[in-house]
Design a protein around this nucleic acid. Structure first.
Length: 956
RNA sequence: GGGGCAGUGGUGAAAUGGCAGCCACGAAGGUCUUAAAAACCUUUGCUCGUGAGAGCGUGUGGGUUCGAGUCCCACCUGCCCCACCA
């Protein structure tokens, strides 16, 4: 037995991590002589511990970055921390730790954990968003946007979270609840800071310049929510006479977009101007500016009551009212501009002040919500689209709205026109309606968006301050550049008042304006998405102090070539950062970088329109599966063990009842199944059931005959969380198997884009692989002279592995590179075992194998590389290039198909011609068997490409 | 209600329109061992068959094609996003 050292990851991994760092092996420096590759992975929030999900996101990205580097690119792969945010502040209140202390302690811990990945992070480019040297520039960006009219302060109905004691952006509110804590959010009129997100809508809808996943593109499009239709103005009936008093007593703001026009009109937005003749009433949002003016004295009380009731409701309650529509009549009327009908104006909370003009024309025959409302309150219904092949609609007897295709009726000049059910001008009835209302001068074609401006102010302490000063006379001033950053005071007191400590910190609060007069500071801080919108720029030069980034670095590295991270950021970070980039470009942030880039021959016009060219999303690692089928098993006992001839899956809730009834049976949950042996949990006691051959298995949820394999021993996969106790700790895995094994397993065991439930068992295969590789590379070289054919075979195996690893890494398919390397391991082991390789062939194959492994498992590759006598470092070597000549074999199998189904194959030379292949196939015994001398109808030849066998399909 | 993604062995999963299930895990049998673990060898999609072999197979039903897991249509199931959006 040969004595040799076995693979011990602990003894090599830390050693190499330290050596690489000491040697600055991964330092990324501008080098115009080499092509650059900026690989970026989403930075973590320093919550305290690195999660297996971070490993899943980062280590495959690292493998790809390493691969690009070995292919000759100058690669930058930075890392940092998104360090502002509420959890730090909550920790401060709950545990009396300063947010900075809590955050930096976590960062310290996570840095160590990140280092244990063995990733090629360039730590000299690390950026931490709560560092004053970083947020100085976050403040600077705000200021530049403000000075260029891209930031503004305005009163608006905003999402206020009573739990978090701050406002939130729309993106952070889901189903009327705060996306982080799930607590309800209320609508509140407040003065807040916004960015002009909507100014860039058209550009944000254009994805031509970026290679991003379709689902992300679609989510962003839906989030922006472009819709085509028309704005139509409805005159208020009797406005001049009846409401003169109300108008004069109300401070009405007039102008476009406010829903109030100088002519005392109500403006609505509709996607269906063709149904205008069917508008039998109007509905205003309760908060609409015209409500007071429209309300008659008789209705005043009920309108006031309704408005008060709506104001009390949270957004959540407004949504979850079982879709039962409520509303009240204002007493006021408007005039349908096309039919001239006098129609009542209602208020209802199903109309949102935040969308369109906050007012709608209600067409009950064409919109189900309007229909429900009309039926409930006895309002008129006039059908305007007559569906084909159906009885003539009658407003009095209709049971639901019709929003499909049909013929226009009861619609004046539109009568008889076709409504094809499509949106916008593609629909003839809509096109005609738009033309009509524009001619009449009562409305015009319009595009509406769901997207609203980005609300960036937060009433919290732990965020980047907003560099604004309020002078004594109430005007705004920006803090001069030389006094940036406005630094968060350290000596703050956290009391559970809910208020930001900045609001009662006198030294922070009190300052002077540009004239030296007393003034107050803005106490709101910025949304943390502001910090993460430009962190990829700070990585370029995290210590640079003359600008947010060094233009020399930007000119070379930008834009980000590959961005990886979770898809959950689709409508938040990934949209914000695109806006931020476009806004920055337009205010000249990139001007210097553009000049430098142009001087080096790059086209600056194409560099700064989008921040990240290619985006790929990884899936999520879920908790391990649990909960199996509950079964009833009967049969013959042998001691404690049951040999079952009958197994039925039963409902969990009936388990106790069935157990009481069938005392001889085993009734319980399957906690484990190994082929036909079940381990069943019967009230905590584990029983063994062997399902015998020919047993009856009944699984009600699976129709047809069932077999033992359909019994599930675990179900219900869940997200990992501390409360569920299903968290997989990467540190433990690393200490058990080593970082290389964890890296390789995460790449091998999952579809990276999908993720999936954790499975502790499968890692064994990767551990075996690394052990085998270790053994092959540390055993003495073979002494035989080698077998030429076997050596050729190994050469082909190496080429196949090169192809699989290269292609997999290029396309973010991390499973196949590992599989390819395992195959190579299998082939090599067999050849070595049979002593078929000469020392040269052996060494050459192992050399390539280690190079292929280097991006995936960097430590073991480096260690074995040096042990085999190659030069440090493997990570500075060139990646093997696929060689089609070496990969080609002399003979191949020609697949013979009958009507497209493979029926056999014959050996042929790999360079066989089409004619020869067809002739050989037709002459083969296989073809003769089914042809029986007859002539085939058709013969199709498929050439063998990329290692695939050639085929001849014979159609009979 | 709108939009998206996915459905392949016992499990994780592969598969440029061209031999479905590469590579692993698990399992069964065997070797070694006092025994176990580890390691090694064989088998392993399902059904029938002692066997050679035959038939069936990528959620369901249609379609396109010489040929469909892959493309198109409809449906079922699961997950995700959005949602009184006018």
């Amino acid at each position: 037995m040969s004595e040799h050292e076995s693979y011990d990851p602990k003894s090599i991994e830390q050693k190499w991590q330290e050596r690489w760092e000491a040697d600055n092996l991964y330092r990324a420096k501008v080098d115009w002589s080499k092509p650059k590759h900026y690989a970026l992975t989403m930075l973590p929030y320093p919550s305290g511990d690195l999660h297996i999900g971070h490993w899943f996101a980062m280590t495959p990205s690292d493998a790809r970055a390493r691969f690009k580097r070995m292919q000759g690119c100058n690669v930058m792969f930075p890392m940092g921390f998104d360090a502002f945010g509420l959890p730090a502040e909550n920790a401060a209140v709950q545990r009396n730790i300063h947010p900075a202390k809590w955050t930096y302690a976590n960062i310290e811990r996570m840095r160590k954990q990140l280092r244990s990945m063995g990733a090629m992070f360039d730590w000299q480019r690390e950026a931490v968003s709560c560092d004053p040297a970083y947020y100085k520039w976050t403040e600077w960006f705000f200021k530049v946007f403000y000075q260029n009219d891209l930031a503004y302060r305005s009163e608006a109905l905003v999402n206020w979270s009573p739990t978090l004691q701050t406002v939130l952006a729309n993106e952070q509110v889901i189903d009327g609840k705060d996306e982080r804590t799930g607590q309800p959010v209320v609508q509140k009129l407040m003065t807040q800071w916004f960015f002009r997100y909507t100014r860039y809508i058209d550009e944000l809808l254009n994805f031509d310049k970026i290679d991003w996943p379709e689902p992300i593109r679609i989510m962003q499009e839906n989030w922006i929510g472009r819709s085509e239709g028309a704005r139509v103005r409805f005159k208020i009936a009797d406005a001049g006479v009846r409401y003169a008093a109300a108008i004069s007593s109300t401070a009405l703001h007039e102008g476009e977009g406010t829903g109030v026009s100088v002519d005392r009109e109500i403006e609505v937005y509709t996607t269906r101007p063709d149904t205008l003749w069917g508008a039998t009433f109007m509905v205003l949002a309760p908060e609409h500016a015209l409500v007071e003016m429209l309300t008659t004295p008789e209705q005043a009380q009920s309108v006031a009551d309704y408005k008060a009731a709506v104001a009390r409701k949270t957004e959540l309650e407004r949504i979850s009212d079982d879709k039962e529509k409520t509303g009240v009549f204002t007493g006021g009327y408007a005039v349908n501009p096309v039919s001239g009908a006098r129609i009542p104006v209602w208020i209802a909370d199903y109309v949102l002040i935040t969308y369109g003009t906050g007012a709608i024309m209600a067409v009950p025959s064409g919109d189900q919500r309007d229909f429900d409302f009309a039926r409930k309150y006895g309002l008129e219904i006039i059908p305007v689209v007559q569906p084909d092949d159906q009885p003539v609609l009658d407003g009095a007897t209709m049971t639901e709205a019709w929003d499909g295709a049909g013929t226009m009726v009861n619609s004046g000049i539109l009568n008889g026109l076709r409504c094809n059910g499509e949106k916008g001008r593609r629909n003839p009835s809509i096109a005609a309606a738009i033309q009509h209302i524009e001619q009449m001068g009562v409305g015009k074609e319009a595009v509406n968006y769901r997207l609203r401006d980005w609300l960036i102010s937060r009433q919290r302490y732990w965020g980047s301050p907003i560099p604004i000063i309020y002078t004594a006379d109430g005007t705004l001033e920006t803090v001069p550049d030389e006094r940036l950053p406005v630094v968060l005071p350290d000596d703050v007191e956290f009391i559970p008042s809910g208020r930001s400590p900045l609001t009662y910190h006198e030294p922070f609060l009190n300052t002077v304006d540009s004239q030296g007069r007393p003034a107050k500071r803005e106490t709101d801080t910025m949304d943390t998405f502001m910090c993460s919108s430009w962190y990829h720029l700070r990585y370029l030069s995290p210590k640079y102090d003359a600008a947010p980034f060094d233009p020399e670095e930007a000119a070379y590295w930008l834009p980000v070539d590959t961005y990886t991270g979770g898809a959950e950021h689709a409508t938040m970070h990934l949209l914000y950062t695109r806006w931020f980039n476009k806004a920055s470009r337009d205010v000249g942030v990139f001007d210097d970088a553009m000049k430098i880039a142009a001087a080096h021959g790059r086209n600056p016009e194409e560099m700064f329109d989008e921040p990240m060219l290619q985006l790929r999303n990884q899936g999520q690692i879920l908790g391990e599966e649990r909960d199996g089928d509950v079964i009833l098993a009967t049969g013959r006992y042998d001691g404690e063990k049951l040999f079952a001839d009958y197994v039925e899956v039963i409902d969990r809730t009936t388990m106790e009842a069935v157990r009481a009834e069938k005392q001889q049976a085993i009734v319980g949950e399957i906690v484990k199944r190994t082929e036909r042996v079940l381990t069943v949990d019967v009230n905590g006691a584990l029983r063994t059931v062997e399902v015998i051959d020919g047993a009856t298995v009944v699984v009600p949820t699976i129709p047809g005959e069932n077999n033992v394999n359909q019994l599930k021993h675990h179900l219900e996969i869940q997200r990992m969380s501390k409360s569920k106790g299903n968290v997989v700790n990467p540190d433990e895995l690393v200490s058990m198997y080593g970082a290389d094994a964890v890296r390789a397993y995460l790449m091998f065991g999952f579809d990276w884009s999908k993720g999936g439930p954790w499975n502790r068992k499968q890692i064994q295969g990767v551990v075996r692989w690394l052990n085998d590789v270790w053994e092959m590379c540390t055993t003495a070289p073979p002494t035989g002279t080698g077998d030429a054919a076997a050596e050729r075979e190994i050469e082909r195996s190496v080429q196949a592995a090169i192809a699989r690893v290269s292609e997999g890494l290029e396309t973010f398919s991390f499973n196949t590179p590992v599989a390819g390397l395992m195959s190579l391991r299998n082939d090599l082991r067999a050849a070595i075992r049979d002593n078929k390789l000469s020392a040269d062939a052996w060494r050459s194959a192992l050399r390539d194998m280690l190079l292929l492994m280097a991006p995936l498992t960097p430590h073991i590759a480096e260690e074995l590389w040096l042990r085999m006598g190659f030069e440090y470092s493997i990570h500075l070597q060139t990646f093997p290039v696929y060689d089609a000549d070496k990969a080609r074999s002399e003979m191949t199998q020609l697949v013979i198909m009958k009507n497209g189904k493979p029926v056999g194959h014959i050996d042929v030379p790999v360079d066989i011609s089409e004619a020869d292949a067809q002739a050989a196939a037709l002459a083969s015994e296989i073809a003769k068997r089914f042809l029986n001398g007859s002539t085939p109808k058709k013969v199709v030849y498929v050439a063998g490409r990329n290692g695939m066998e050639p085929k001849v399909n014979i159609v009979v």
